[in-house]
Design a protein around this nucleic acid. Structure first.
Lengths: 230, 230
DNA sequence: TCAGTACTTCAGTAGATTTTAAATTACTGA
DNA sequence: TCAGTAATTTAAAATCTACTGAAGTACTGA
């Protein structure tokens, strides 16, 4: 009887650990983070995360086996996406636990931003209020597909790669607030550095779309779905 | 520049993965679950989780290095406790993700309860309402220390081990609702089986104290702290 | 039918984890 | 000071994991 209880508990905790195992590897966490921004093919994920293709495929398999992501084949491409909104929430709760408990996270971020001088001291609440009120030009510097999958209301899509040659599209007399995937994504950091170098008054919003949404604020998605499923 | 970005990301995801690694092992998850009920010594944890002492000590070290738990030495004993309330929340969100995504969790639970016939079909909301209204005798069947660390308001503490010889304390003409550590703890299951065998009308509340609290309902803790820190 | 592309699987290796038993440390009370 | 207890550390074996390059599969378009 006692041993039946033990077997039950062991079986249950083994199931819980499947999810723990899935998120126990830095590369898989980066893939999960990317997938929180929207669906993507294996190649796109591999390139973005700086991994080999075979390796990426295997990590995605592990995530699939923990039922955190789903794959769909369309023609030559296999598109991966989060299995559920709850997965992104869970990832965000991991991230916030890490921020709260691991001083190293703040330390690493502080050092990184320091090396790119002066990007850190921005009053977040004030910035958020301006963004909410539409008092500034809001710039989404992620790749277009991610913008299409969901973006802040009124945000202008200018992917970082195109920013330099599309500067003309930005009003010069208004503050610019750039955002990307979240606090550990560097796209907005680079955008702000570049804009400041050109004389713009530019700030970085740490929140990504998922963070914004988690604060109960509105997010807009394009009609046409990007994951190219029909 | 791009490689500095890569190093930053790698460093950040490595930090996140420290927490993932900590919860990637079934035994460590069981320890975490137990610590959600309150502080405990290494020996108590080892015994409860059915692990060797050396092994338990090493798992606890891993949890400590991920800053999920803290240890405090008092005399011969080392008492471990959760480092923060947020850790328990995180554990609960892992559990609920596993319940939502892994059909095996429901399957294993269903089979286990089936083997102990007829314990599953209880209307949870109705039961909760009765408990909230005090219309039933609420029985906390966990060990006394856990009751002391926090329990439902008005609950009677009768640890499962003492239940048989303390039956006289229970009113015979009222329904009894027993609870323990949560949906995967078997103490309340055993208590209800036993009580029904003696002719009582008894039900099991799936929620543990942490679940109850997470629903925004009140929890009472004893004055004197149990973790024997001074 | 064939070449090319996207992805997966396989095999091998280097390295990390888990577990146990034995040795060690840190403390208490006699 | 010494025996006894709680916990940690060490060492070794068995088992997983992560990554690479090569081979295989599935689909497209010529």
């Amino acid at each position: 009887m006692a041993s039946r209880n033990r077997r039950f508990k062991t079986a249950i905790y083994e199931q819980f650990a499947r999810i723990g195992k899935a998120i126990s590897n830095p590369s898989r966490l980066e893939l999960l983070d990317l997938l929180c921004q929207g669906p993507r093919t294996v190649e796109a994920l591999a390139k973005e995360a700086g991994l080999g293709l075979a390796n990426t495929s295997q990590h995605l398999k592990a995530l699939r086996e923990a039922r955190l992501v789903e794959a769909e084949k369309a023609g030559l491409y296999v598109t991966y996406r989060l299995a559920d909104e709850q997965v992104c929430q869970f990832y965000r709760s991991l991230r916030s636990l890490a921020e709260a408990r691991l001083a190293e996270v703040g330390e690493i971020t502080r050092r990184f931003l320091e090396a790119r001088q002066g990007l850190q001291p921005v009053d977040r609440e004030q910035l958020l209020a301006k963004v909410r009120d539409g008092a500034v030009t809001v710039l989404d510097v992620r790749p277009l597909e991610e913008y299409a999958a969901g973006h802040l209301p009124g945000a202008l899509s200018v992917p970082l790669k195109e920013l330099e040659r599309r500067l003309a599209e930005l009003p010069q007399d208004r503050e610019i607030v750039a955002y990307c995937r979240g606090p550990y994504c560097v796209l907005a950091v680079e955008a702000v550095e570049m804009l400041r170098g050109r004389g713009y008054v530019a700030f970085r919003l740490e929140d990504g779309v998922a963070d914004w949404q988690a604060r109960g604020l509105p997010v807009v998605a394009d009609e046409r779905e990007t994951g190219r499923r029909d």
